[in-house]
C-alpha cells in the first residue's frame, strides 16, 4: 500500500459528484454486504498501514423529516419522518492531515453507519480510493443495479397490452 497523500480523491476542488455517489451506494447497500466486502478488503491491508480511526461523533439515531410537494411539483410540505443513523470518524494519518468520514444512513443500524463513515474517510485518500472503489463500491453498485433490473422485468410483465376488438363486417 502507498502512503496516503494529502489530496482528497473526493472533492479537492468542490467537485462532490464521486463522493456523493459512493456515499449513496454505501447508504443503500445491505449492511451485511458492506460489512462482508469491507472486512475482506481490510484483511488484505498490511498491519503497518492499517487505518487508525478516532470517533468524532458516535453513531446516533435520529429523524429526517421527509418532504413532498403538493401535486408532486408544487409547494413543499412535511410528509412524515424517517429514522436515520449518523456517524463521523476521523482517519489519523502520519505526516498528512486527518480526514473526516461522514455517514447518514436510513434506519437504525449503528454498525452500518460507523462502517460507512470509516469507508467514506478511506475513500477520500489516494491510497485507498482506487482499490476500495474496485473491491467494494463498484460491486455494491452493480448488485443494486442487478436487483433493480430483475424487479423491473417482473414489474414489466404486469404492463397492460391493450388490443382493440374488431367488429365483423357482415
Amino acid at each position: 500500500m502507498t502512503t496516503p497523500s494529502s489530496t482528497n480523491a473526493g472533492s479537492p476542488t468542490g467537485e462532490d459528484a464521486p463522493r456523493k455517489q459512493w456515499m449513496a451506494v454505501l447508504a443503500k447497500a445491505p449492511a451485511k454486504r458492506v460489512e462482508a466486502l469491507a472486512t475482506a478488503y481490510l484483511e488484505g491491508v498490511a498491519d503497518a498501514v492499517a487505518p487508525r480511526f478516532r470517533v468524532l461523533r458516535r453513531p446516533e439515531t435520529g429523524l429526517v423529516m421527509v418532504r413532498g410537494r403538493a401535486g408532486g411539483t408544487g409547494d413543499p410540505f412535511n410528509m412524515g419522518e424517517m429514522t436515520v443513523t449518523r456517524c463521523t470518524v476521523v482517519l489519523e494519518r502520519d505526516g498528512a492531515a486527518a480526514v473526516a468520514g461522514h455517514a447518514y444512513i436510513a434506519g437504525r443500524d449503528r454498525a452500518h453507519a460507523t462502517l460507512a463513515a470509516k469507508l467514506d474517510a478511506l475513500l477520500q485518500t489516494d491510497g485507498h480510493h482506487g482499490p476500495l472503489m474496485a473491491a467494494l463500491v463498484e460491486p455494491l453498485a452493480r448488485e443494486a443495479e442487478e436487483r433493480r433490473a430483475a424487479r423491473r422485468r417482473r414489474v414489466g410483465a404486469t404492463k397492460v397490452d391493450f388490443f382493440t376488438l374488431v367488429r365483423g363486417e357482415d
Binding site: V66, R69, V84, Y104
Partner: peptide, 12 residues
C-alpha cells in the same frame, strides 16, 4: 429522537 434534518422534497 432528535431531528437531524429535513429532506429535499422527494421527486415522485
Amino acid at each position: 429522537l432528535p431531528r437531524f434534518a429535513a429532506s429535499r422534497p422527494v421527486d415522485t
